[in-house]
Design a protein around this nucleic acid. Structure first.
Lengths: 89, 89
DNA sequence: CCTATATTTAGATAATTATCTAAATAAGAA
DNA sequence: TTCTTATTTAGATAATTATCTAAATATAGG
């Protein structure tokens, strides 16, 4: 994964809003898509970037793919950002 | 400022490395530039984005402009990221 | 197997961004 | 003022990215 992909993923407003949505719990790609004025293909692309960055996990259940937050990478992020405050590297 | 500019600023590796450098203390644009294989104009552009995001502050002293970390925006960032862990929005 | 639904992948295009060179601005020193 | 140095701004270009439509894949249910 790496911090580069994480920040790239978070640099898009739609993707940050997807994460916000997923705070409420797992949701299918289609359900997530209903909250945004973009095509399913575009939504799939955003989900793919978030997944590649490790920020979300996917879980196929039959026809549906459920996405959920992966908070373990959030820890890594907080650690990086906190490092900015910490003082000399 | 806003979280959008902050994440956009952090989505570039060079800019994150500039912040890393500035952990050691204030530095002029020229000194920062020496650490990267880019032109002065490109460095100026990166510094401008970091400044616009509120991540650094500038302080002209004669011919030089010193840049330094601005940790107050780092707080805002940590808060946003922590919100991902926190539970329902 | 065939059809319908959910999602992704492929390919194209428009917008954004990183970068460069050249020119402009700012400041100190001769 | 003129020259030199530090930095930014302007304008152009190449690379990246967000988005779309159309086609492909995956799965469930007749």
């Amino acid at each position: 994964m790496g911090i580069q992909k994480t920040f790239k993923a978070l640099s898009d407003k739609n993707r940050r809003e997807i994460l916000d949505l997923l705070k409420e719990g797992p949701m299918t790609a289609g359900e997530i898509g209903q909250h945004f004025p973009v095509s399913g293909a575009t939504m799939s692309h955003h989900l793919s970037m978030l997944k590649d960055a490790g920020l979300i996990l996917d879980d196929r259940q039959g026809k549906y793919i459920y996405y959920e937050l992966n908070t373990s990478v959030v820890e890594e992020l907080i650690s990086w950002v906190s490092g900015l405050k910490g003082g000399a590297s």
